[in-house]
């Protein structure tokens, strides 16, 4: 049975697109046929993060409007088997996504894929509501910072009340907490909320903790999802999250400040 997973947050800039790219790619690497759908209408960016921006011909809204079929709009990843991207359109029309239109496209995708990853736009308006409406699972992407945590809690409220599963009294959406841009050093100094703090406040199971990392910037600079950078801390942290998403129980890494040599200790670094 195909699964629809929304990567959502409320707040912008917390790492949804980065995470959608990494998680979609990670699932495909594990042999599951996967499509990542960009719901950020008007602000298409998943294509850049995935490095396929020059191959976009048709988009999500074209498919909804019947101007193209799915096969014409889907972009096949050149690095990983079984991985596709459905780009967002650049239209400014806020009502381009309709519930019926989105539902039909998702139904068709379900026939061909194991996982459908929905990269949500920020906010709690139409785009974000559409991205989460049909979800079976939600990856609530959160930074250890007050406004992000509060917005994540609001999104949890919306998942509980305004999703298809909630409206039809089906089993609730399965929720996962993904903590991103984590600075263990700052947490150690008491300057930043810790994993445990955020877990306690949001009270949903922890899927992963992604450290703040230069490797994420390198990855987006070169259009290559960070999970393919297997040496990087962020890449490994996303791989761990994939294992957990697939049901494994594994230890969390990168939660404590790395020990610095005496030189760095004195002179900083």
């Amino acid at each position: 049975m195909a699964k629809i997973i929304v990567v959502t947050s409320g707040k912008g800039g917390v790492g949804k697109t980065t995470s959608s790219a990494a998680i979609g790619t990670g699932l495909a690497l594990k042999g599951h046929s996967t499509v990542i759908v960009d719901f950020d209408i008007g602000l298409r960016n998943l294509d850049l993060v995935m490095g396929c921006e020059r191959r976009v011909v048709y988009d999500f809204v074209n498919v909804i409007n019947g101007e193209a079929n799915l096969n014409q709009a889907l972009i096949k990843d050149k690095r990983v088997n079984n991985l596709y991207i459905l780009p967002a359109s650049q239209t400014r029309d806020k009502d381009a996504l309709t519930r019926d239109g989105v539902g039909k496209v998702l139904e068709e995708l379900k026939e061909n894929f194991d996982y459908i990853i929905c990269d949500s736009p920020a906010g709690i308006e139409t785009g974000a509501l559409m991205a989460l409406y049909y979800a079976d699972e939600a990856i609530v992407t959160t930074n250890p910072e007050v406004s992000s945590v509060r917005d994540s809690d609001r999104i949890l409220g919306i998942l509980h009340s305004k999703s298809n599963r909630a409206e039809r009294n089906m089993d609730p959406i399965k929720e996962h907490l993904l903590l991103t841009r984590y600075h263990p050093e700052r947490v150690a100094k008491g300057e930043m909320l810790s994993v445990d703090d955020v877990k306690e406040i949001l009270a949903i199971p922890l899927l992963g903790v992604i450290p703040e990392s230069q490797s994420v910037l390198n990855a987006s600079n070169s259009g290559c999802p960070v999970i393919l950078d297997e040496e990087s801390d962020a890449g490994m942290a996303y791989s761990d999250a994939i294992e957990r998403l697939l049901g494994e129980t594994i230890d969390f890494r990168f939660l404590t400040a790395e020990k610095k040599g005496i030189f760095k200790r004195i002179f900083g670094g």
Partner: peptide, 28 residues
């Protein structure tokens, strides 16, 4: 680092953040 040591005269604020969040989230 020594530099950080002199820079960080401010009190750590993570616990304040946590308390405020707990209150507002419970309220909402």
């Amino acid at each position: 680092s020594l530099l950080d040591y002199f820079r960080s005269s401010a009190k750590p604020t993570a616990n304040i953040a946590k308390e405020r969040l707990q209150i507002i989230v419970a309220h909402e």
